[in-house]
């Protein structure tokens, strides 16, 4: 089931990092097989913006949100950062604490992280630098107004 959503206010750990931002999920490793909503299989490094948009269009439960990076601060955990996003059309402010190398998918650009060299070193996933102003792909439930 999709990971729980984050709420605004106090900094929350990213749901994809379970309870603490100290681990990277296995599916970011280069070569990982990803299944799109139409059943097509692609490698994580080959994914394009359209793959997420089309998969969300097919999904009856999920919808794509645009989340703009507003701030990037040093995290409370070593090797972590706190990223403040403006989420969705209302630019709701949400903060997440993630590892420096945690990749986000930027519209029209692909995988990006706060420390691309570290991402490439650990995951063999080529990565751009995540910057303030980048618009990332995120998800929301269609049932949420």
């Amino acid at each position: 089931s999709p990971a729980p959503a984050l709420a605004p206010g106090p900094v929350q750990a990213s749901p994809s990092l379970s309870s603490s931002p100290t681990t990277l999920p296995p599916f970011f490793m280069r070569g990982s097989i990803i299944q799109l909503a139409d059943g097509e299989l692609k490698r994580v490094e080959d994914l394009k913006t359209e793959d997420f948009i089309q998969s969300a269009e097919i999904s009856s439960e999920l919808k794509i949100d645009s989340s703009t990076v507003e701030r990037i601060d040093t995290g409370q955990t070593p090797n972590a950062v706190i990223i403040q996003f403006g989420v969705g059309e209302h630019k709701a402010q949400v903060c997440v604490e993630v590892l420096l190398e945690y990749p986000f998918f930027v519209f029209g650009q692909g995988w990006s992280s706060c420390c691309p060299d570290r991402t490439t070193q650990l995951l063999e996933l080529s990565c751009a630098k995540l910057c303030v102003g980048d618009v990332c792909v995120s998800l929301t439930l269609r049932s949420l107004r």
Partner: peptide
């Protein structure tokens, strides 16, 4: 030659986070 048996397949939506606040605005 040995065929790989189980290659994990991950759903597309596990790659991107849910960031939208869940409380009512």
């Amino acid at each position: 030659n040995v065929e790989p048996r189980s290659v994990p397949v991950f759903p597309w939506h596990s790659l991107v986070p849910f960031l939208a606040p869940t409380q009512s605005d």
